[in-house]
Design a protein around this nucleic acid. Structure first.
Lengths: 205, 205
DNA sequence: GATCGATTTGACCGATCGGTCAAACCACAA
DNA sequence: TTGTGGTTTGACCGATCGGTCAAATCGATC
């Protein structure tokens, strides 16, 4: 392997880890696998990172910041509530479309014991708070119409688009992850948010 | 370990596998772990089952039949569409509440490479078909309002209730998995289906 | 060409994995 | 008492895991 500066090589390894963790899950990928995909020997991974856990933490950290950056502007936009929500849905969907691996990786970590739950909480909390702020005008702060329920319902509807896609694909008719498929899904989610808003704020918002 | 008839001992092992796979995921559990939890030595697991994969297949098979049985009657019920949908939501939620491990296990398998996708498809397909039949009166068979989108959205809203619960719990206020928490979630999901139906069938259905 | 620090690597470690197997064990019938 | 067949077990296997380390290799500097 020819030489390469520290940052570049680390980025190669990180990118390979990102892809593989997303495809096969944390436990399903060995350090050897990551090294092979990056065109590097296994020991080099331990030269650039403290270990496999460190590798996953860096991958998650990258995702977290990208995830939050993608949603910040959408949440802070002005205008009527419905338009803002559509913007958030679009930003969420767009980010996931460009980071296929992320949704699958996070779902895998959730289903895999409490070891990483704290990590995931720190990422989810600001999204929940933003949703609560955005819906403060129309949703009560407790009960079945509280903002947190809509957060769980809508984020699930977005994320599951990507986690279920490879399983549903054979019976979906068309490819649910294609550009057309995602555009259709986007329209569906707009319909859902509009339907919910119709019931939450009987007059136009 | 004292003697026990074949069926009984196999059921013990299966029950332990069920719990552990749900808590830590398939890859996160060793055959040794399952044996220990069942109060049996590791070799006994291989006496009653062909291997670890066979163990998971039996667990999934049990779940599949239970899952389908729980939803069959709800889907086949008579009455207005909204009431039928509420019934399906309740049955779905009730089944998951009594089988915490199932949702987490399935999500984990989805996020873990295509090895088990075929298996999961065979379970998901009848649910999708039932949803398509149930919504045939109000939903077109293509486009963003097709039944398959509502299937993905609503099943995601139900399942994520359980997979996200342990992660969201600290910021949820109350325990989302308690009886009260689930009742509240149930009301929320009824609200969501009603909101969707309001838009799908402008007149009462 | 010698030196030096950063990078790369092959060899190696102990632990654990899924799986095998022959021996031991036990209830029961002859 | 001696079989006998179903059950349980400890010991063992090869493979793979995450991780370590000293030696080899390289680019730049003098």
């Amino acid at each position: 392997m020819e030489r390469a500066p520290l940052k570049e090589r680390a980025a190669q390894i990180l990118a390979s880890a990102e892809t593989l963790f997303g495809e096969r899950g944390y436990d399903g990928v060995s350090v050897r696998d990551v090294a092979d995909a990056a065109g590097v020997k296994k020991a080099a991974v331990f030269y650039y990172f403290e270990g496999k856990e460190d590798l996953l933490e860096r991958v998650l950290e990258r995702y977290y910041t990208a995830h939050r950056e993608a949603l910040t502007s959408a949440f802070e936009a002005k205008g009527p509530l419905r338009a803002r929500l559509h913007g958030v849905i679009d930003a969420y969907l767009g980010f996931m479309a460009e980071n296929h691996a992320y949704a699958r990786l996070v779902q895998g970590l959730m289903a895999q014991g409490p070891a990483w739950h704290g990590h995931l909480q720190r990422n989810l909390e600001p999204l929940l708070r933003w949703t609560e702020e955005a819906l403060a005008e129309v949703a009560p702060d407790r009960g079945p119409l509280a903002a947190r329920h809509f957060f769980l319902t809508l984020s699930g509807a977005v994320i599951n688009t990507f986690t279920y896609a490879p399983v549903l694909a054979p019976m979906w008719g068309s490819d649910p992850m294609s550009a057309d498929g995602l555009a259709e899904r986007r329209e569906h989610l707009h319909f859902v948010t509009d339907a919910l808003m119709d019931r939450l704020e009987p007059r136009d918002g």
